[in-house]
């Protein structure tokens, strides 16, 4: 029996995430594309929800979340496509690192991409649609971060599994959105509650708690299932 030193779980996950971020820092391909796509979507949605030159205030939150979800899928597909093109997924899976750690590293990398996009998208909804984003900045940030974690966790599992599938580009959004929809509902409803003023604050807190539960459940399912789902 060989006894190699097992890499720490967190260290392995951090290494995978750092690798993804380093690749991204050199090309900036994914984040630039995602951010521009998110901005583009907002402009498109403004046509759908505008009335006499003004966008309905309730629509701003929905537009923000639609932009986050769509651009997130773009980044997700690209982050895993890189592994497929370089045939590096096999290398990752063959490494002594825990598969759960590899998965967490990929998800964490995606989280960072999405948070960068959100950091641009939130000011944009404020400027374009007059959304009161400075009303409750901490709660809004918490909503975005929690929903992004849930999205990245579920998305990374399915993107990794779809790598070897023929029609992965079409299947990824089709299977991803129904599963993450509760998180998106929570995001939209929570944001709407935040922007309604202080009387709707308990509702916003309910949605924050809901997102926490969503993340916990799917993180547990993902870590449990990833090992047996991704086989090379």
């Amino acid at each position: 029996m060989y006894h190699h030193r097992r890499m720490g779980f967190v260290r392995a996950a951090a290494l995978v995430a750092a690798k993804d971020l380093r690749v991204e820092l050199r090309t900036r391909e994914v984040v630039y594309t995602m951010t521009f796509f998110a901005a583009l979507l907002m402009v498109l949605f403004s046509f759908a929800f505008s009335q006499g030159g003004q966008v309905l205030p309730e629509a701003a939150g929905g537009i923000l979340w639609a932009a986050v979800a769509f651009s997130g899928t773009l980044g997700l597909a690209r982050a895993f496509e890189r592994e497929r093109e370089g045939d590096t997924m096999r290398g990752l899976l063959l490494s002594p690192a825990d598969r759960g750690a590899i998965f967490l590293g990929k998800a964490a990398g995606l989280c960072v991409y999405m948070l960068i996009v959100e950091a641009v998208a939130v000011p944009l909804v404020a400027i374009l649609f007059g959304a009161p984003v400075l009303e409750r900045p901490l709660e809004l940030a918490a909503l975005l971060i929690l929903a992004t974690i849930g999205f990245a966790v579920v998305g990374s599992v399915f993107a990794a599994m779809l790598l070897r599938t023929r029609s992965r580009e079409t299947l990824l959004p089709v299977i991803l959105y129904p599963i993450v929809l509760p998180a998106l509902i929570a995001g939209v409803k929570g944001t709407a509650a935040l922007w309604q003023g202080s009387r709707a604050l308990p509702q916003a807190h309910f949605w924050l708690l809901f997102l926490l539960v969503f993340d916990a459940i799917f993180l547990a399912v993902a870590l449990w299932a990833f090992e047996s789902l991704v086989v090379e």
Binding site: V157, M161, T165, S167, L171, I179, P182, F214, V221, L229
Partner: peptide, 25 residues
């Protein structure tokens, strides 16, 4: 239908996530 060969595992994962989704939805 369209997953091609090897999609059983993926489908099982989707069903699992889907079932976990029921109480959340």
């Amino acid at each position: 239908r369209f997953g091609g060969p090897g999609s059983e595992r993926l489908a099982a994962g989707l069903a699992l996530f889907g079932t976990a989704d029921v109480p959340l939805v």
